[in-house]
């Protein structure tokens, strides 16, 4: 059976740490970093990358457009 696998790239320097992506992600992929970026924000990152389906919801809801989404199909 084919499986959809996704991944996100966060422009961590431009992330403002609003966490809207965290609550939007149904797969609970995204967490907030311990360290802060140069503006002092904790930034979003893939805390649980295995679960990402590349649904793009996080990127669509991101007010600052800092998330890019990648997706591929894997054959078992």
């Amino acid at each position: 059976m084919a499986k959809i696998k996704g991944a996100i790239v966060v422009d961590s320097e431009r992330c403002k740490g609003c966490e809207l992506c965290v609550s939007t992600c149904l797969q609970q992929v995204i967490g907030m970093s311990e360290p802060v970026n140069s503006k002092g924000y904790h930034y979003a990152y893939m805390a649980n990358p295995e679960a990402c389906t590349g649904c793009t919801n996080c990127a669509i809801i991101c007010p600052d457009g800092v998330i890019s989404v990648y997706r591929t199909k894997i054959e078992d």
Binding site: G6, A7, R14, C18, E19, G54, T56, P63, S68, T72
Partner: peptide
Amino acid sequence: IIKPENLVYQKSRLMSDATFNFCPGC
């Protein structure tokens, strides 16, 4: 997975690199 051929979403190419002046979460 993070390869150009797998890219499914990124901000519009019509957006500049300027950071929004909006507050976080706006």
